[in-house]
Design a binder for these strands. Structure first.
Lengths: 194, 194
DNA sequence: TGTTACCTAACGACCGTTAGGAAGGTGATT
DNA sequence: AATCACCTTCCTAACGGTCGTTAGGTAACA
């Protein structure tokens, strides 16, 4: 179905050129239809962008949740640290992350409210997921320095966002350099091990 | 001089709408001239954007260096931690930072090389500045856990970038929440104090 | 018969850019 | 001292292009 192709291609183009820079002409051509045919599936550029955002957030949330579920039996540090490596290995998906970061940080002005309404629940649910993970895991491992799990989760998310942004922008090498610099410090800061 | 006005107004518009979304028409109107008059000062939109980037990086580097010079006699933690507060108070005009982040993360495709050529030295010089700061200060305070100052500086820069990005995007309140979550962990991770 | 998914053609608006000229100041030449 | 050429800075007018969008039609299919 062309509707789904349009959505995926749009994410690609919006990620690369931004809302203003992406061209419906080019998106249509890549999908193999003419520009006005887009309007058979979406009300317009705004609608396409909003639906792309909704899809991207839902998909990314699903992937993150899957990772942390699948590593449930690993030690906490391995699960948290391995997340970065897992993210790299899903190389193809950094288009999704790039789209999300761009739409989050620099949304088109007129859609700012709609973006906020979508991103806040997304981020909150990630925050909750991580908080629960830290709390449950610490109950058995007793490894975290502080029991303020919510705060620790937020710190982890901040560092993750910073390094993943680096990955999206500067590539794998710069990312590895940062990760190797920042992770020992962060883990030493949040765990009991000294 | 209109040339300088054009530069500053451009930074404002590029920060708000991106390269593709910014309009020479609107920039000219805000400065009080007609659109084609821009060409008396700059060769075109590209030239304007590149000169704006050069100016913004030079200016931001100057401000950062000034802060760390002025806090030279403070304890290291105070100087590093206070940087965030200083950024909020001194940079109520966070437009400069917003422009820099946007131009760094999502440059116009055709200017990607020129952007990289400008941003790498900028980031490297910040990295060097911080590395020297940590080394010199640790010589007297003996407070850092590791003597890999370059790595510690990179970790600090990563966290700073992540939280400052949060400030630019989500505002002061979300920024404070993150800063309070992440700083105790990072400082505990990089210092000897347990 | 009605709906879905595509098409061609074309709309008005805006884009960055160029041509060409007016006004004013500067500096050298007469 | 007066004239001249020249440069800078602005202007109006207009260029070719691309933008998102709409109108209206066609073919397939339920």
């Amino acid at each position: 179905m062309k509707a789904q192709q349009l959505l995926l291609t749009s994410i690609h183009h919006f990620a690369a050129h931004g809302y203003e820079g992406a061209s419906l002409q080019e998106i249509a051509t890549e999908v193999g239809i003419k520009k006005p045919s887009i309007y058979a599936h979406y009300k317009g550029k705004d609608d396409l962008f909003l639906q792309a955002t909704t899809y991207a957030l839902q998909e990314q949330k699903r992937r993150f949740a899957t990772y942390f579920t699948n590593t449930r039996q690993q030690p906490l540090e391995q699960s948290l640290h391995g997340f970065f490596d897992w993210f790299i290995s899903e190389q193809q998906d950094d288009i999704l992350m790039r789209f999300i970061l761009r739409a989050a940080y620099f949304p088109p002005e007129k859609l700012e409210q709609e973006m906020t309404d979508r991103f806040n629940p997304f981020f909150d649910s990630l925050h909750d997921l991580l908080t629960r993970l830290l709390r449950e895991r610490d109950r058995t491992e007793q490894i975290l320095y502080s029991t303020n799990y919510k705060s620790a989760a937020l710190a982890y998310l901040t560092v993750a966002e910073g390094t993943l942004t680096e990955l999206v922008y500067n590539g794998v090498d710069a990312f590895h350099a940062r990760q190797q610099a920042v992770w020992p410090i962060v883990w030493r800061g949040m765990s009991k091990t000294i």
